[in-house]
Design a protein around this nucleic acid. Structure first.
Lengths: 235, 235
DNA sequence: GCTCGATGATTGTGGAACAATTCAGCAGGA
DNA sequence: TCCTGCTGAATTGTTCCACAATCATCGAGC
C-alpha cells in the first residue's frame, strides 16, 4: 500500500561521485598504462600536486593506492616509481593469471552461464584483427579475457583479474608486433569460447592454459630483450 | 680486490623500518581480525589518531589501505566501518579461494616442489587438534592452506591469498565449534598433502575443492544464522 | 682513488583550519 | 499521522604550512 513512492529504495544506484584522491589515482594510472610515464620514472609529489591543482596529501594517498594496486613501486624516503618488470615478474603474474582465468573458464563451462559479454568482446576482437593497430589488438585480446572472468559474476575475482592485467600491461609495451599473432588470435579465441559454451571444462582449461603459456613466454622473451637495469625492484 | 668491506653488499637485509601509516594499519588490522572491533563498528579518525598519538592524515592513509585490502568498507562522507559479511560475500571469497588454491595444488603436484613449510604447518595442526581451542584450530587449518600457497613461490599469488584469508576471517567469527570437525580435519589434510606429494594433480585438486566447498557451505550457513542487518554493504 | 661531510631536493609527519556532507531532532503544516 | 524543511552538531574531505628525516650529489681533503 505504498502511495506515491517515486523512487523505490531497491532502485538506488551509486551515482559515482569521485573524491580527489580517486580522481588523481585514475589520472595517474591512465598515464602509466598508456606508457606516457615509462619505466623508471619517478612520480614526484609536489609536481603532481601542482599539475593537478590538489594538495600534496591527496597525491600521496593516490600514489599509495596505486602502489597497493601493484602498478607502482614505493622506495621508502625515495619516492614512487614506475617499475620495469622482469622475467620473474612476468612469470609471477602468469601464475596468478592462470589461477584466475582457469577458475573462470572451469566455472563457466560447468554451469553454462550466459556468455553475452564474451561474444561482444569477441566481435570487438574481430574488428581489431581486421584493421586496428597492434596496441589496440592486444587490448581487444585482454578484453576477451576480462569478459570471461566477468561472466563468472564474482566481484572479487574480477577485481583481482583487473589489477593483475593492469600490472601486466606495464610489460606489454615491450611486446612487438608479430604478424603471425594477427592470424592465430581469432581462431584460438573462437575455439576457446566455443569449448566453454559446449560445456567441456577440462578441454577448455587445457586450451586456456596453452594460450596463456604461449602469451607468457612471448612476454618473458620481450622483457628479457628490453634494457635490464637496476631500476627493477622487488615488490 | 675489496679491502676492509665490513658488510658485503649482497648481504643486505631490508631491516624493516615501518612507517607510521604501516604501523597504524597493522595495529588496526590486528584489532579487527581479533574481533575486538566487531562488524558494524565505525572507525573514527580523530579517536584513532588520538589513541595512537599520530596525525589524522596517517590514520586516514592507514584506513584507506585496509579498505583497499578488503578488510574494511568505506562510505563516502560517512566513514570507515567493519563490514558484516553476507552469504554472497562468502560465496564470492570462495570463488577466489578456489582459484588460488587450486592453482597452487596443481602446480605443486605437477612439479613436485619441496613441501617443508606444508609439513611444518601440518604438525602445528596436529598439536592444535589435540589441545587448542576452536579458534586456534581454525587458524592452524588456515595455516596449512597458506603454506600450500606459499610453497608455490609466487609472491603475488601469496599476496592475493593472504588478503583473501584476511577478509574471510571476518566471517569466521560466526563459525561455531563442531566436534566432528576436530576429528575429520587431520585425516582430510593428511590425504590432501600426501596426494600432492604423490604427484597427482587431478586427484589433489578434486580433494581440495571438496574440502573448500564444505568449508564454504559451513561458513555460509553460519553467516546466515548471524544477525542480518543493513550494515552489510557491497564492496 | 677513496672517504668524508656539506648541501639541496624530496619524502614523512604533524598541526590547524575550513568546506562539505551526513544525521538526528524538532517544529510546522496538510 | 505523515511529510517537509530547518537547524545544529558531528564527522569526513581537503587544503595550506611547517619542519624533521632521509637520500643523492658533489666537491674538498687526505
Amino acid at each position: 500500500m505504498r502511495k506515491l513512492v517515486v523512487i523505490d529504495s531497491r532502485d538506488v544506484v551509486p551515482l559515482h561521485r569521485v573524491s580527489t584522491v580517486e580522481a588523481v589515482a585514475t589520472a595517474v594510472r591512465a598515464r602509466v598504462l598508456d606508457g606516457e610515464l615509462g619505466p623508471g620514472t619517478q612520480l614526484r609529489e609536489v609536481a603532481l600536486a601542482q599539475s593537478y591543482g590538489v594538495a600534496r596529501h591527496g597525491v600521496r594517498a593516490a600514489l599509495h593506492s596505486l602502489v597497493q594496486e601493484g602498478l607502482l613501486r614505493h622506495h621508502p624516503n625515495r619516492g614512487v616509481f614506475v617499475p620495469l618488470l622482469t622475467a620473474v615478474d612476468v612469470a609471477d603474474l602468469h601464475t596468478v593469471r592462470c589461477a584466475v582465468e582457469s577458475e573462470a573458464v572451469t566455472r563457466l563451462a560447468e554451469r553454462g552461464e550466459p556468455l553475452t559479454g564474451v561474444y561482444e568482446a569477441f566481435s570487438r576482437l574481430e574488428e581489431a584483427v581486421a584493421r586496428a593497430p597492434w596496441r589496440e589488438l592486444i587490448m581487444a585480446d585482454l578484453g576477451i579475457h576480462r569478459a570471461v572472468v566477468d561472466a563468472v559474476g564474482s566481484r572479487r575475482l574480477s577485481r583481482v583479474h583487473a589489477s593483475l592485467i593492469g600490472e601486466l600491461r606495464l610489460a606489454l609495451a615491450a611486446l612487438r608486433e608479430k604478424a603471425e599473432k594477427r592470424r592465430t588470435m581469432l581462431p584460438e579465441h573462437r575455439e576457446l569460447i566455443s569449448t566453454i559454451a559446449a560445456g567441456s571444462p577440462e578441454k577448455a582449461t587445457a586450451l586456456l592454459r596453452a594460450h596463456l603459456d604461449q602469451a607468457a613466454s612471448d612476454l618473458a622473451l620481450a622483457v628479457l630483450g628490453s634494457p635490464t637495469d637496476t631500476l627493477t625492484n622487488a615488490g
